[in-house]
């Protein structure tokens, strides 16, 4: 992978996208034993179902935020798998929120490690959660945005990456 150049916005967002794509596959395999595949031809996650998104921001040589969102149904399955529980044993939203936040933290953590190995330091924010039936995440004017779509059996995961270089 080429070293990042803070003066080249396209390179930055392209590299962040690649790093997040690799990190998603790595973390889902290691933490959940889920072999997820990126497929940009897919539709976004299921309409009309409640959704949950875990997000973690990063600040430093480049700044931005990563949202991982999916249906509450799949988030529950992920939480159960992560904790070694049956889905029915996953009680309430708090447990799911925490697991989704931790997944986002791990994915962005992997990205941070790889950026650091290339000489670009960033710090991570504490994870946060967004829940709802109909919501959109939009970029501010100066940020670059990429959307990555992954499939895991019949489920979809959508990752939104927004990044901009530090002024």
């Amino acid at each position: 992978m080429p070293r990042l150049h803070a003066d080249d916005r396209d390179v930055i967002i392209d590299d962040v996208e690649k790093l997040i794509s690799t990190a998603m596959k790595e973390v889902f395999l290691k933490a959940l034993s889920f072999d997820i595949q990126q497929d940009q031809s897919l539709d976004t996650v299921a309409e009309g179902e409640p959704h949950v998104a875990g997000s973690v921001g990063f600040v430093g040589g480049i700044s931005g935020i990563v949202y991982i969102y999916t249906t509450c149904r799949f988030a529950r399955a992920m939480t159960g798998k992560m904790l070694g529980l049956a889905e029915a044993e996953v009680e309430g939203d708090e447990m799911i929120n925490d697991a989704m936040g931790e997944m986002a933290n791990m994915v962005v953590g992997v990205m941070k490690s790889k950026l650091a190995d290339q000489g670009l330091q960033v710090s991570l924010t504490i994870p946060s959660i967004v829940r709802g039936n109909h919501f959109t995440i939009e970029q501010s004017g100066s940020a670059h945005r990429r959307v990555l779509i992954f499939k895991c059996d019949e489920h979809r995961l959508l990752v939104e990456v927004m990044a901009k270089e530090q002024n």
């Binding site: 973390v27 290691k30 931790e102 941070k112 950026l115 330091q121 991570l124």
Partner: peptide, 23 residues
């Protein structure tokens, strides 16, 4: 959650017995 070389070195210098990368 951060496995970068620099981070690992920083942790090692803090006097910890071992470290684990999440996940």
């Amino acid at each position: 959650a951060e496995a970068g070389r620099e981070n690992v070195l920083k942790i090692a210098k803090m006097g910890v017995r071992d470290y684990l990368i999440k996940p």
